[in-house]
Design a protein around this nucleic acid. Sequence first.
DNA 1: GTGAAAGCGCTAACAT
DNA 2: ATGTTAGCGCTTTCAC
Lengths: 337, 337
Amino acid sequence: MAATIKDVAKLAGVAISTVSYALNGSPKISDETKRRVARAAEELNYRPSGAARNLKKRKSETIGLFLNALGGPFYSQLIEGIQEVVASYDYKLIVSSTYGGENSSAHRVLREKFVDGAIIMGFDIRDSLILTIAGKSLPIVVLDRELNADYVHSVRIDDEQGAYEAVSHLIKLGRRKIDFLSGPVVAYDNAKRFAGYRRAMDEHGLPYARTIKAQGRYTETTGYQSMKLMLAANRLPDAVFAANDEMAIGAVRALQEANLSIPDDVAVVGFDNIHQASYVRPALTSVGHSRYELGAIATQCLFHSPREGQSIVLPTELAIRQSCGFGRTDGSPSANA
Amino acid sequence: MAATIKDVAKLAGVAISTVSYALNGSPKISDETKRRVARAAEELNYRPSGAARNLKKRKSETIGLFLNALGGPFYSQLIEGIQEVVASYDYKLIVSSTYGGENSSAHRVLREKFVDGAIIMGFDIRDSLILTIAGKSLPIVVLDRELNADYVHSVRIDDEQGAYEAVSHLIKLGRRKIDFLSGPVVAYDNAKRFAGYRRAMDEHGLPYARTIKAQGRYTETTGYQSMKLMLAANRLPDAVFAANDEMAIGAVRALQEANLSIPDDVAVVGFDNIHQASYVRPALTSVGHSRYELGAIATQCLFHSPREGQSIVLPTELAIRQSCGFGRTDGSPSANA
DNA sequence: GTGAAAGCGCTAACAT
DNA sequence: ATGTTAGCGCTTTCAC
């Protein structure tokens, strides 16, 4: 049986409350008593119970981050941004996966009020759940959708505009048959990126498939597969705009296997500008944004937490690299001449 | 104020205990009552308090995974392996970062007994802490070190043997001046990989630096930097064995920038065989192992949890690709002829 | 089948 | 400066 505050009190010969005060550094307790208590706690290898503490204080001092897939290259900086702010408020951060639907760890952690605030990026957490659990003691920030309600904030990057600029750039370079390599159709950001793609295409009167045929899961493998599918269908575009970088990288691989040159035959542009984008060959043009900022700002929302949910949209910036070429006819960078 | 079980009881016109039984599906409660309780809970938007539940049941039904840096490419599969097993026991999984020393989220979560089991991979959690907190109600598995005690298990991959085989392979291919690109010297796995490297070098009477000069942090950037340093020191090896793939990829970049050919001028071998290794150019030879298995086995240890800590070592397998060449003098694969 | 009541390990108001 | 005490919101034993 692990030692409780009671055991410590008995061993130190003081009252339970004295132990509590002493261990929490209250100035009301004399140094002498504090030492005695500390020694007793040490001797018993006493660890306070977080559960009891949370129950009593009615808060957990914990922020939860809920993602569908942990471990992607995308999340590293996002988490850093969150971590930094969470730590500055002297809170803890736990991350949990939304994978597995209703019974996922994320759902359970969320439902059981284990956290005092939640940052959600993962479409398997439905809007309806978010709306029912959000409240004064559990503000929520969503990063991958637009959702407005009391204590529900939305912080996101400008997917639509970013996609628009990327595709416009391809068009400016002379590309005409531009395909969209879709991520999950249920994903809000994917829809927005598709919308930006459509706006650019429409503006220039270019034809495109209005509906998404093949959808990927934002992974390199599904990007590869979707591209293979396109190639097998004998529809060779002169450019591909992928819903994210991982899918773009998968597409590049499929194109290279088909002995197509990038960017000469097909230009490829991704989204997110992950670290990898700059060192794959050819280096990938991508719509960039600061994931650190995204995380940091989202977390600030949580602690600030006014009742009226805000909606913040962060800008994107196109990182132009070799994969989209520098003009239609010759694929060589002019600076290389 | 959020509704508690008391509010539900009052609204449903039953006793608190009845609500508890009803909501937890006890067969002792009539269907009629269950319906009434469910309706009341629904109406009040009642969410049970995890803290109260944990306090009463003296367990959290949660497993914690503690890593120093979330989001690396390495962790994705590891987490899947863990997640799968955790879910099969109907437990939750939370992930927390060990970054930040004593005040990191990981430390606090561990100290406050928020989890019923812990999987630790991150050298910022000291052995001494692990030894004091481990116990019957908190078994621990460490993945990145050898540590034996009651309720402390160690599951790891055979770093030493894997490194030995990788370096032996390089030697077999005719490489002689093989440098070790070190990760953090405090990391146990790094030390083991260095040891395997030394064993292979010693066995063939090859000279090498006995001490680690430059150390990286297992990141692409630090691999790049260390390699730059080596090159600046005018010490051109004919092969580099990197402590992990990310560092190897960084080294490749540095070598390519110096206009050196891989593998003709310098062969490069990494460790971990991350997904990326197979599609960087040149494809990276790497010591592979199953991270999914690692995670799954570690988690099984937690639930099995006999007092005597076990020590499990998983095998590695060298994935041979272009970056190490196929012989010393010609760099072309024989199969290509 | 349902209710009353004890108590999990803490914190904090209040008393001394 | 220290002790007493009343809960926090649940689960579970026991009584009816």
